[in-house]
């Protein structure tokens, strides 16, 4: 037996999962499932879509309608699902490499359309599954197997990227702030439009080892000690916020939603007949 949440919402016959010891993806997956439980949404009305990568293994363990797609294309498939059946709550689980590198174009266009999809990024700052290559969110100066002397690329601020592209809800949390993930995902699902939640994960096997970040608990404490809530961050200068992780609900607004606008076009032609 396992806890009620796991028993009810996960495919127990597929557990234990394949993620490394100390990988925080399991924590985030449970937090998402808790958010769905809190909102009391019928399991059949949810579709979870993922691409390729460590994070994208998650829908395999989740007992909903699930779709495991090609690398970077999770949002493209999810857009199709939402257009075909707008009543479904579509949730995309993706990784930093999957959504920001290979699927970067799909990400900005899904945000631009403001289509009602909740995207949750498991950001572990590295390509874990393929062997520790640096990703678009690997911080500048940090190492990966493809950047043995340090990464010279400037990393993406994903929440700012999608906000600029037109998303109507953005939030950031970490694997330490588990209840905050649940809260943000709840708000993201409730928001009618493109919602983007970035959750910082820990990857002790590749990112931690390559960058000498210590053991699992050290990495978790780093997230705990270097995070600052967005409300507290407003009062601080850019200098004080250097190397800090700003967590919380970052942006929320209301814009016309894509599938509803599309429905209006269809209805206008039906009236003419």
């Amino acid at each position: 037996m396992s806890s009620r949440l796991i028993n009810e919402y996960l495919r127990e016959d597929k557990l234990p999962h394949i993620w490394c010891p100390g990988c925080s993806h399991g924590i985030t997956m449970r937090a998402i499932v808790k958010a769905i439980d809190n909102l009391n949404i019928e399991k059949n009305n949810i579709c979870i879509v993922s691409g390729i990568g460590c994070s994208s293994r998650a829908p395999g363990y989740m007992d909903f309608n699930t779709l495991h797609t090609t690398h970077g294309r999770a949002l493209a498939f999810a857009t199709g699902i939402k257009m075909a059946n707008p009543k479904l709550k579509v949730i995309v689980i993706t990784g930093d490499g999957d959504c920001a590198a290979i699927g970067g174009n799909h990400l900005i266009h899904a945000a631009r359309r403001n289509i009602d999809i909740t995207t949750i990024v498991f950001n572990n700052n590295i390509y874990g599954m393929t062997g520790g290559q640096y990703s678009p969110t690997t911080p500048q100066g940090e190492r990966g197997t493809t950047a043995p002397f340090g990464n010279i690329d400037k990393n993406f601020n994903l929440c700012n990227l999608v906000k600029a592209a037109g998303a109507t809800y953005t939030g950031r949390s970490t694997a330490y702030h588990v209840n905050m993930i649940t809260k943000l995902v709840e708000e993201g699902i409730k928001n009618k439009g493109f919602s983007f939640i970035e959750t910082l994960s820990i990857c002790p096997t590749y990112y931690g080892r390559k960058n000498k970040k210590g053991n699992v608990v050290d990495m978790m404490n780093y997230l705990k000690n270097n995070s600052i809530n967005v409300k507290a961050a407003e009062k601080l200068s850019d200098e004080q916020l250097k190397d800090k992780i700003i967590v919380g609900e970052l942006y929320k607004t209301q814009e016309p939603e894509y599938t509803e606008e599309y429905k209006k076009i269809i209805e206008s032609f039906q009236k003419e007949r």
């Binding site: 037996m1 806890s3 557990l15 234990p16 925080s24 399991g26 924590i27 588990v178």
Partner: peptide, 13 residues
């Protein structure tokens, strides 16, 4: 412990 366990191996039941 239940909230933070990545492997769902400990819980209050």
């Amino acid at each position: 412990c239940e909230m933070r366990c990545p492997d769902y191996a400990i819980y209050l039941g």
